[in-house]
């Protein structure tokens, strides 16, 4: 299988969008990443990643939710598509499989 080649930030954003579940848009993703990982990410970088993920078909989006603090502008709300979820699963599986193959730390002296 071809596999999904996700960048580190892409993977993170994908997960966050999944977590936010219907409430994911630029600012909320930035906030969530900050809240969950303590990492400050620039809004424009998030926009780039969101758009790219949508182009790859891992996210879908719809307009909605105008608020006053946005000057009456609508948000673009992102949600995970089926292949987005599949991508997360696959990435996780690969991670786990690789992790499981790590030799136990410091106890194995056969490979000195």
């Amino acid at each position: 299988m071809k596999g999904y080649h996700l960048g580190e930030l892409e993977e993170l954003v994908l997960l966050i969008v999944g977590i936010l579940n219907q409430e994911a848009y630029g600012v909320s993703v930035v906030e969530e990443i900050k809240g969950q990982t303590g990492r400050k990410v620039n809004i424009s970088a998030i926009h780039t990643v969101l758009n790219r993920l949508e182009e790859k078909g891992l996210l879908t989006s719809a307009m909605g939710g105008a608020t006053e603090e946005r000057g009456g502008r609508r948000k673009r709300l992102f949600s995970l598509s089926a292949s987005g979820r599949a991508a997360i699963n696959e990435v996780k599986e690969v991670r786990n499989r690789l992790y499981d193959q790590l030799p136990p730390l410091a106890l194995d002296f056969s490979h000195g």
Binding site: G26, V27, V30, H47, E69, R70, G71, R73, R76
Partner: peptide, 16 residues
């Protein structure tokens, strides 16, 4: 096409 969401986010952050 991108203006609305970008400007919206920027405004939101501004007020925050």
């Amino acid at each position: 096409e991108l203006l609305e969401q970008i400007q919206g986010d920027a405004y939101e952050i501004f007020y925050m």
